[in-house]
Simulated scan of single mutants.
Amino acid sequence: MASGTPIIRQINWLALAFQLCVFVGLVYFFQWLQVGAASLSAIAAYLVLVYFLRFFLAKYHRYGMLFLKRSEFEAAIPYFESSYAYFQEKPWLDRFRAVFLLSSSRISYREMALVNIAYCYSQLGNGSEAKAYYKQALQEFPESGIAQAGLNAMNATGKE
């Protein structure tokens, strides 16, 4: 089921290379264990590992994205706020997300949370809250192209 909600993925190629190394390491591990179909076992182990890590460590973000994709913006906001607070308390987890979450995202979970909150508020017609969150994202992440584009769009349409 495709939604009309734009989802932007920015890839950190170094993190993707790390994931490939983890996968290759799993293949060699299963070969060392002399498991038949070591590649298939490595694929299964990698997918379980990624799901397990993201299920528990990024659960608020996951729930927020679930509601965002369903266009349930009001329901998504508290989950993104919880995600922001969680990664604010654990900045090392967000900074090293390629290792701990096997995430190849170039932008941090905190930045994603802020721009997603802003987007949700803009979709709910609350332009002032949306602008405040885009500005907060730019304050914390000055290079955030997503936040800058969102703020520019808000300013161009004159939404308040």
Rank of each mutant, 00 (worst) to 15 (best):
M112I: 12
Y51C: 03
F18E: 13
N126H: 14
P78M: 06
E74C: 01
P91Q: 12
A75V: 03
I107R: 03
G25H: 10
I43C: 07
S103H: 07
A130P: 08
G4S: 09
Y46G: 01
A42Y: 00
A130W: 05
R106W: 08
L16S: 13
G145V: 15
N152F: 05
V99Y: 09
S82M: 15
S83D: 15
F30G: 07
Q19D: 14
L33S: 12
K135L: 05
E111A: 01
Y46T: 01
E160N: 15
L93C: 13
S104G: 15
A98K: 08
P78G: 04
W32Q: 12
G25Q: 10
F18A: 08
S122W: 03
A149M: 07
F55M: 07
N152V: 01
A58D: 07
G4Y: 02
A156C: 12
L101S: 02
Y79K: 09
Y121H: 14
L68H: 05
L114G: 03
S3A: 12
I8L: 12
K135A: 09
G145D: 10
I11H: 14
F67V: 01
Q34T: 07
S3Y: 04
G4C: 09
Y79N: 15
Q31A: 01
K159V: 04
N12S: 13
A17G: 14
G64N: 09
N155T: 13
Q139Y: 11
L57A: 12
L40I: 11
R70L: 12
E129K: 12
P142S: 11
G36Q: 14
K59H: 08
A38Y: 02
A132N: 06
W13A: 07
Q34F: 06
A153T: 11
L47H: 09
L114T: 00
K159L: 06
F30A: 00
Q148N: 14
L124W: 13
Y79M: 02
L101N: 05
G64V: 04
M112F: 02
L138F: 04
P78L: 03
S128M: 06
S71L: 05
F23W: 05
G158V: 14
F56N: 10
A58Q: 02
W92M: 13
Y79T: 11
A45W: 02
N155H: 05
Y46E: 04
E81A: 11
W13F: 08
N116D: 14
Q139L: 07
L124N: 14
C21L: 15
I8G: 09
F18C: 03
A147N: 08
P6N: 06
Y28V: 08
V50R: 13
L114H: 04
Y79F: 15
S41T: 10
N155S: 05
A76L: 01
A118P: 00
A156V: 03
K131N: 04
I11L: 12
M1Q: 12
E74R: 15
A149G: 13
M154Q: 09
A58W: 02
A58V: 10
R62A: 00
F18I: 07
L40S: 05
S71Y: 03
H61V: 05
R110K: 15
F56H: 15
E72I: 06
